[in-house]
Structure formats: structure tokens, C-alpha cells
Design a protein around this nucleic acid. Structure first.
Lengths: 200, 200
DNA sequence: CCTACCGATCGGTAGG
DNA sequence: CCTACCGATCGGTAGG
């Protein structure tokens, strides 16, 4: 029983080590530029050995992107549910994003940069997850009287811009921004976007 | 004389055809995913023949990115110089960007997505051009009393955000946005960012 | 997890 | 601009 557990654990941790190394290498050098031999030797083993833990290179990329989006979604929803007043929701949303941005910077990079390297099926799944995230954002820009639009899954230009700001900033070659700075800037922009919209 | 001219022209146009095909293929499928055989067969010729017109694949990518940034810079400066009043400058800036976005969508994609596939020297050159563009933007956010900062080449977070919005939106998987829509959204956001900043 | 290997494809060159 | 080819490397597999 104990041996079963420990061998399961070590298999799991070997797999986790591969995932961690992959997210690091893919994000910093690019998915296509990293060969399976690069990934293997980074972990001190040989290319063929990887296939006991992964199906193939593309499935590995998809797993990293999907898990990243799922984590971001869950974390964000969870935080927003803690809001006692409606006006707290934006702050909690931004908090969740900033935390994720600093803890999982590389996964955010993969989500924004390596979409094209997935197959059609995987891309559809990623779009689905991104839309779920977008619909969280759209609640900030949606008035009571046009909730129907949001419900229909349509995404307004302002929401699109907001998503662009969030994901884009991880990609632009960037001076070192601190966590409070990023929070302040995003709060700034979002507040102002919401205010501007409401004045229409 | 005429034959010289026409042969020069046809050599030039052959080169232009390669550049046009490359920007299209690299932007839609990704630089690494497009082989020189793909590029050649897209033009109805063989891989080896390309090397009479280009040095190598990477130099081809750099040429596309550099020329894109130079065009955007020149076009933007030129338009902004036509401003008769200071408040027109923002509109002209956005006009220049939107025009470029629709005319050279693929080049914009390369600028934002394929930076990592350049060598160090080429990357430094691209950063230099991007900074020149950023400093154009920073004039909108800079007060009279802190012009020195802008002069020092420092880039404030708000400028960085603006750049992110401009370049990021070309990349996010996007519903079809019309030219007036994009102009309106960008004007919206920028005006509000400037207003918000000035209120500080 | 390793050794050894597969076919395919890559960027690039030579010679005409 | 084509034919023919180079060495290198790719993702992935077999067999232990």
C-alpha cells in the first residue's frame, strides 16, 4: 500500500516536473523553437522517456494552456463571490488577475502566444474558456437594461478592449512592473472605462 | 537602357512578390511553421530559387518587421504634423494607426508576435523603433512640467498600456471590427485615459 | 527511463 | 530559376 502510493506519487511528480519545465521553456523560447530533446535534457533525461508521461508535444501544450485558463477562471470567480458590495467586484477581479499574472506569468504567455499551435478542436476549447472569462468582464460594462446581450454571448467592443489590455500586457516587452503598480494601473483604466461607458 | 530598366523592375517585382507572400504566410501560420518550401511553392517556384532574392529566412522576417515599423512611424509623424491645433493631434495619431491596422494587418501581427524569432541585434533595432513610437504616444500623457522624463526616454506605465492596447488588439482573436468602430473605441479609451491622468 | 533508430522535413548550397 | 543534394534536427517509436 505504501509502495503503491509512493510510486504513484513519484510518477505524478515526474509528470509535474515535465509540465513545469515545459511551461518555462515554451514561454521563454517559443513552442516551436523548443524541441523535445531540449525539454528532456533540461530535465536530465532523454527524449524518448518523455512519452511515458505525455501523449505528444501538442497535447502537452494544450494541457498547459487549458489548465492555466481553468485556474484563472476558478480563482477569479472564487474571489468575486467574496464581494460584499457590488463595487468591490471590480477590485477583486483585478486582484485575481494580478495574482495570476505574477504567479503564472509563463502560462499567461502561452495562452496569448501559442494559440496557433493547437489543432482546431483544442482551439475551439480554448475559445470557449476565453469567452467564459470575457463574460465575467462584460458584467462590469453591462447595464441592467441590456443584460440580454451579455446573456446571448455577444461580446461588446469595450469588453474586448479590456481583455486585450489584460492579456496584452503580459506580452509586450516590459519594464519590471511591481504588483501594486500593475494593480493601480489596471484599476485606473478599468474604472475610467466603466465611468466613460456609463456616461453614454 | 530599356531592357536594363525592365529587367531591374522584374527583379524588384520578384522580390516584392516574395515579401508580400512572406508577410501573408508568416502572419497567418507563424514564422517557424512556414518552411521556405511552403513559401516557394506558394509563389510557384522552388526553395533554392528564393536565395537569389533574400539572404536567409530570418533576415526576411526582420525586413518585414522593420519596414512595418518604419512605415507606421513615418505615416504617423506625417499625419500629426498636419494638426493645426494641439487637440487634433490625438485624432490624427489614431487615424494613422487605424489606417495602418487595416492596410497592413499582417505586418502588425508580425511586429507583435514574431519578435522572439529575431537575433539579438535585430531585436535591439526593433526595440529602438518601438521606443520611438512609444515616445510619440507619451506626448499625450505628459504635462508641461514633466517633459524632462519623456526626454530621458523613460516610458510611463500609462504609455505602456496605450501601446499594449494598440498592438494587442491586432492579436486577440477578434470579431470583425470595422474601421469606424475601431477609431471610435480607441478615441474613447485614449481620451478617457488622458482625462483621468490629468485629473491626478 | 535508456539505446537506437525511423521517416520526414528543415534551412541552405552547388552547379548549371 | 531549377535540379539535386547536404548535414542537422525534428517528433515519435520499438524493444528492452
Amino acid at each position: 500500500m505504501q509502495t503503491t502510493l509512493s510510486s504513484t506519487n513519484s510518477i505524478q511528480s515526474a509528470r509535474d516536473r515535465i509540465l513545469d519545465a515545459a511551461v518555462e521553456l515554451f514561454a521563454t523560447r517559443g513552442f516551436q523553437a523548443v524541441g523535445l530533446r531540449d525539454l528532456a535534457s533540461y530535465l536530465g533525461l532523454h527524449a524518448g522517456s518523455l512519452y511515458h508521461h505525455i501523449d505528444n508535444k501538442q497535447a502537452l501544450l494544450f494541457e498547459l494552456i487549458e489548465s492555466g485558463l481553468l485556474d484563472l477562471l476558478q480563482e477569479t470567480k472564487c474571489r468575486m463571490n467574496n464581494a460584499r458590495r457590488p463595487c468591490e467586484r471590480l477590485n477583486l477581479f483585478i486582484q485575481a488577475f494580478v495574482k495570476f499574472n505574477f504567479k503564472e506569468k509563463h502560462k499567461l504567455t502561452l495562452i496569448t502566444s501559442e494559440f496557433a499551435n493547437l489543432n482546431k478542436e483544442q482551439q475551439a476549447r480554448v475559445i470557449q474558456l476565453k469567452n467564459r472569462y470575457s463574460s465575467l468582464i462584460s458584467t462590469f460594462f453591462t447595464h441592467e437594461h441590456n443584460k440580454k446581450e451579455a446573456f446571448n454571448g455577444e461580446i461588446c467592443p469595450l469588453t474586448n478592449t479590456a481583455v486585450t489590455i489584460l492579456f496584452g500586457q503580459s506580452q509586450w516587452y516590459n519594464p519590471e512592473t511591481t504588483e501594486p503598480q500593475l494593480t493601480a494601473t489596471l484599476t485606473h483604466i478599468f474604472t475610467c472605462m466603466i465611468g466613460n461607458y456609463k456616461r453614454n
